Simulated scan of single mutants.
Amino acid sequence: MFVLGLESLIGYAGLGLGAVLTLFVSNPLSGIATGWQWLPSPWGMIGQYLPIGAAGNAARSVGFFDGAGATPSVVTFIVWVLIGLGFVGLATLKDRKAASPAAS
């Protein structure tokens, strides 16, 4: 939803920005392969607030711990979805304002 919101707000550049954020920033900082605790000090924790890090943590929590500890990851997902919906809303307002005839 976040990438869709970026695309609707700034066009194809939003797709590129979303891809860079998820593939080149979120993926390495997620710590899925080893655990975020093994990453350098602030980066492992930052990665847990990005979509792929939250997904890895949620999958690990459900797979090994019967869902215990998955709440912060679910909250992270909800925040990213709300940000994406906010971007879509801003793009809709921008398009409506551009489409409305100028008052004479």
Rank of each mutant, 00 (worst) to 15 (best):
M1H: 15
M1L: 10
M1N: 11
F2K: 05
V3I: 12
L4E: 02
L4I: 07
G5K: 08
E7Q: 10
E7H: 13
S8E: 09
S8H: 14
I10T: 08
I10N: 07
I10V: 15
G11I: 08
G11L: 07
A13F: 14
A13N: 10
G14A: 12
G14F: 15
G14N: 13
G14W: 15
L15A: 14
L15P: 02
L15T: 13
L15Q: 06
L15N: 08
G16Q: 03
G16N: 03
A19Y: 12
A19N: 04
A19E: 03
L21W: 09
T22A: 04
F24E: 01
F24C: 05
F24A: 05
V25E: 08
N27Y: 11
P28W: 01
P28E: 02
L29H: 06
L29E: 09
L29I: 07
S30T: 03
S30P: 01
G31L: 09
A33R: 04
T34C: 02
T34E: 14
T34S: 10
G35Y: 05
W36N: 05
W36S: 11
W36Y: 15
Q37L: 11
P40T: 08
P40Y: 11
P40N: 04
P40H: 08
S41P: 12
S41A: 14
S41M: 14
P42F: 10
W43F: 15
W43S: 07
W43T: 00
G44V: 07
G44A: 06
I46T: 15
Q48R: 12
L50Q: 02
L50C: 04
L50G: 08
I52M: 13
I52K: 07
G53E: 00
G56R: 15
G56P: 03
G56M: 06
A58N: 00
A59Y: 10
V62Y: 07
V62I: 15
G63M: 14
F64G: 08
F65L: 05
F65T: 13
D66F: 01
D66T: 08
D66K: 02
A68E: 15
G69M: 05
A70K: 05
T71M: 11
V74N: 01
V75P: 02
T76P: 05
T76G: 06
T76I: 03
F77P: 06
I78Y: 01
W80L: 02
L82T: 08
I83H: 00
I83G: 03
L85E: 08
L85F: 04
G86D: 04
G86E: 06
F87H: 00
F87I: 06
V88M: 10
V88K: 09
V88R: 15
A91S: 07
A91I: 11
T92S: 14
L93Y: 04
L93R: 13
L93S: 11
L93V: 03
K94D: 15
R96V: 12
R96S: 09
R96E: 14
A98K: 11
A98Q: 10
A99E: 14
A99W: 12
S100G: 05
S100H: 12
P101G: 06
P101R: 08
P101D: 12
A102Q: 11
A103I: 12
S104W: 08
S104E: 13
S104F: 07
